[in-house]
Amino acid sequence: MGFDWFTFIAQLVNFLILLWLLRRFLYGPITRVMKEWAEKVAAGLAEAKEREAQAEEALASYAKQSEELEGKRQEILRQVQKEAEDNRRQFLSEARAEVQEARNQWQLALLRERENFLQALRRRSSKEVYVAMRQALRELADVELERHIVTVFLERLAALPEPQRQKMLGAIKHANNELMVRSAFELPDAEHKELNVVLHELLGEELKLHFLTTPELICGIELSAHGYKLAWSVDSYLSSLEATLEQLLASSTSLVKDRGVGA
């Protein structure tokens, strides 16, 4: 077993060749690929880290937005609740005012109705009183009474103030000197003549008198020419009384109206 130098040199060369071959076909490509893979993994990890950071940022941003939205929501909710409460109070006060108004209206209507009723009652009672009075006077009235009335009428006619007399004369002139003399009963001759004389004296000789019997006068006498009327009769008294009553009732109604408005 000797040492073969040729084989030794050849093996040395062989080893160098193998070194070169493996460097070319094994270590070079494998280390390159491993490096690529390591770089890929590192890049992937870096990207993942970046994405994680982005995701965390996005999460933080969403959390912040959500918080803001929650805050806004609470704010809006508070506002809406406040508005609702204000509206409720307003509606309530309006409803109260409406109810008060309706109650006032109703009370006014009730008052008016009562007043109307009372007025109708008054009117009716006064009418009844008037009718009863008229009936009573009609029953009392007779020629004798009328004669007394004519006597008083003539006295009053004689004492008629000058302006009224002139007014009457004007009216008679317009009516072609015709004067209507109405009485409830047929006048007795004596009164008839006296009236004729007095009227001619007072109002002129050319005066033409027309005598008429009107039972509506109840008792009394009435002179009329072209819208001018001079009367002294129970009917005129009663009419005057009725007018006064009407006036009183009207004033009481206006009083009720005033009170209604004031209430």
């Binding site: 062989n14 060749i17 193998l18 071959l21 493996l22 076909f25 094994l26 490509p29 494998i30 390159r32 690929v33 690529e36 893979w37 890929k40």
Partner: peptide, 20 residues
């Protein structure tokens, strides 16, 4: 030589289709 051929050939066959 046999060993060298074996090592080189197998390396070549494997490393010609490397993937990362």
């Amino acid at each position: 030589w046999l060993l060298m051929a074996l090592l080189t050939l197998s390396s070549y066959l494997i490393t010609r289709r490397l993937s990362s």
